[in-house]
Computed example of a mutant assay.
Amino acid sequence: MATTASTLLKSSFAGARLPAAPRAPSSVAVAAPRGAGPICASASSSSPPYDLTSFRFSPIKESVVAREMTRRYMTDMITHADTDVVIVGAGSAGLSCAYELSKDPSVSIAIVEQSVSPGGGAWLGGQLFSAMVVRKPAHRFLDELGVAYDEAEDYVVIKLQDIGMISAVPGMKALDMNTAEDEIVRLTREVVPGMIVTGMEVAEIDGAPRMGPTFGAMMISGQKAAHLALKALGRPNAIDGTAPAASPAWREEFVMSSKDDEVVDA
């Protein structure tokens, strides 16, 4: 059906905000007054509350999970195979484009994003700083979305939300070459059955310092991980002393890290 410019919904580009779409009423859980008993976590008022002290999930087979995920994924693929607009990238531009297009319900849209979270650089503000600068008159788009900001003469500043859930950012610590390489080798290990961490992943999960442009520990850590894998497979390996180490340097590093590992394991 042909659509003329006069029939298109107005957007923030014209300075007018769209009316909110009507929504069907739904029941939601609310905080109960003090002393009123447990809070119902379900959106339905008819569902009984559950006991968090003895909560149990219903049993399920992995094949059922795999089937449901595959079926629904393929259904989505089939549904969106014939699409008017495909947006590659769910960053600020991609999401803004999708938002504007969605005002015309006759347009079918699909967004493809490689990351597990949308937003792109908007999460970082810019160069890892905690604020976003938006020059006027683009702030009208923020008005339409209801995004709060601090206003200046020619621009506005959006302060990214601080939810205060963690006291420190997890992951590797700052650069310390002398400490980092020993730590990377020492902490190379099997963290859970069947999973061995090596290289910079060790620093990520243990909060060890990063090593910068020195790569000796990367090589030795990889060799240690290989012998740990051989050990797990029941093959001759240098961990058990049933096979020679790959090099004298590796042997020296491994002896030192093994002593430290005994302390860690204890």
Rank of each mutant, 00 (worst) to 15 (best):
E201L: 13
I196E: 00
T3H: 10
M219S: 11
M74A: 09
S130Y: 04
T179R: 09
P236A: 09
L187Q: 10
C97H: 00
Y73N: 02
F215L: 14
S11G: 14
S257Y: 03
I39K: 10
G126R: 13
D84L: 01
Y50P: 01
R67H: 06
D176I: 01
P244K: 07
I111Q: 08
E262V: 13
D206A: 05
T179G: 14
R186F: 11
A66G: 07
R135H: 03
E253Y: 13
E151S: 13
A238N: 08
R56K: 04
A5F: 07
G222A: 14
H139P: 06
M177R: 10
E68Y: 12
V65K: 09
I158H: 12
I196Y: 01
N178H: 05
L18D: 04
D154Q: 02
A225Y: 03
T83W: 00
E181R: 11
D206N: 04
T70F: 02
A225P: 05
A225W: 03
V85A: 09
A81W: 04
H227N: 13
A229T: 07
P193Y: 02
G241L: 10
M1F: 15
P244Q: 02
S221E: 09
P236Q: 11
T242M: 15
S117N: 05
V107F: 07
M69H: 11
Q114W: 04
E204S: 13
R23I: 06
I184A: 03
D182S: 13
H227Q: 10
S11Q: 01
G35I: 04
M177V: 14
S11C: 02
M177Q: 14
A168K: 11
G207T: 03
F215R: 11
K173Q: 15
D51T: 04
V192K: 08
M1Q: 11
P248K: 04
D51I: 08
P22L: 12
L228F: 01
R186S: 15
D150Q: 15
D143C: 06
I78Y: 04
P49N: 08
L160V: 00
P38K: 08
R251S: 14
G126H: 14
F13A: 07
S11E: 00
A5H: 07
L18S: 00
S47N: 14
R189T: 03
A31S: 05
F254H: 09
P49M: 05
F55P: 01
L101D: 06
I184E: 04
S167A: 10
S167N: 15
P137Q: 14
M211G: 05
A174R: 05
H80G: 00
G207C: 11
V156P: 02
M218G: 01
C40G: 11
L175N: 09
V264L: 15
D82R: 00
A93V: 12
P33E: 01
I166K: 10
P19N: 01
T4G: 12
K224L: 06
A243D: 05
P38Q: 07
P248L: 15
D143Q: 08
G35R: 01
D182V: 14
G91R: 09
P213Q: 00
S96I: 00
H139E: 15
G194M: 10
L142G: 07
S257K: 03
D84S: 09
A24R: 08
Y99E: 02
Q127L: 15
T79H: 06
T79R: 11
D206I: 01
K61E: 13
G171V: 05
M256N: 04
E183W: 02
A41T: 03
S46A: 14
Q127E: 15
P22T: 05
I158P: 07
